[in-house]
Nucleic acid binder design. Structure first.
Lengths: 103, 103
DNA sequence: CTCTTTGGTAAGTTATGACTTACGGTAAGT
DNA sequence: ACTTACCGTAAGTCATAACTTACCAAAGAG
């Protein structure tokens, strides 16, 4: 019950946009809703799904709530992806080598 | 239009099972349907979605069709994940270091 | 204490997508 | 040529989930 929820959570476009918005900086529900084409309650519901998938965390800030991204949540998805390569470690190395070249 | 489709494709449980079954070896539609709790046409429809997401490929084998996994399709998803780390390269290195220790 | 801001929850509507059965099409066997 | 095996597509059903409005609770500001 980990990467399954991540796929479900990030399959929705609006939810992905919210998640990507949090990549830049922590934001409140109202701030997030401003840049989305849906209502604020909808954003709240999406944030709950993201939270259940361990992709975001909350911290109360007075009357508002500051949502932040949880990168560790993505690690589970990364591990899942690795299981599709026979030699995950060498795949990582090859990837790094490729990136170092293009830098 | 790449990692979006992958999230959508792998968000469904049945589709994930089909995809994971192909991880071991290429299989025909009939073979895949045997191990799934849904009908053969349903499996066909799922395979179409996986194919549109560049996650599987087909090769005709007489009257049957052999489906194989396309690992390159997952690379796009991996790149997307990397974008959530400020310094992707060092993140990779840290990950490798961690894995080497536990080996 | 009252008013305002902020946001989570409930209830109801609607669109989407996962499934079924039925059908058609192609390749191999006899 | 006829039959069998394998599979994709069409059409229709049904459950789910994404959205809305309405309401309620909690935390500052005056």
């Amino acid at each position: 019950m980990a990467y399954e929820d991540i796929f479900t959570a990030l399959a929705d476009q609006t939810r992905r946009h919210i998640f990507e918005a949090l990549r830049d900086q922590p934001q409140t529900v109202g701030q997030l809703a401003e840049h989305q084409p849906v209502s604020r309650p909808a954003v709240s519901q999406h944030l709950k799904v993201l939270q259940d998938a361990n992709l975001v965390s909350v911290e109360p800030r007075g009357t508002s709530r500051l949502y932040s991204i949880r990168r560790e949540g993505l690690s589970e998805l990364r591990d899942y992806l690795d299981s599709f390569w026979s030699d995950a470690l060498s795949a990582y190395s090859a990837e790094i080598a490729r990136r170092m070249k293009t830098n």
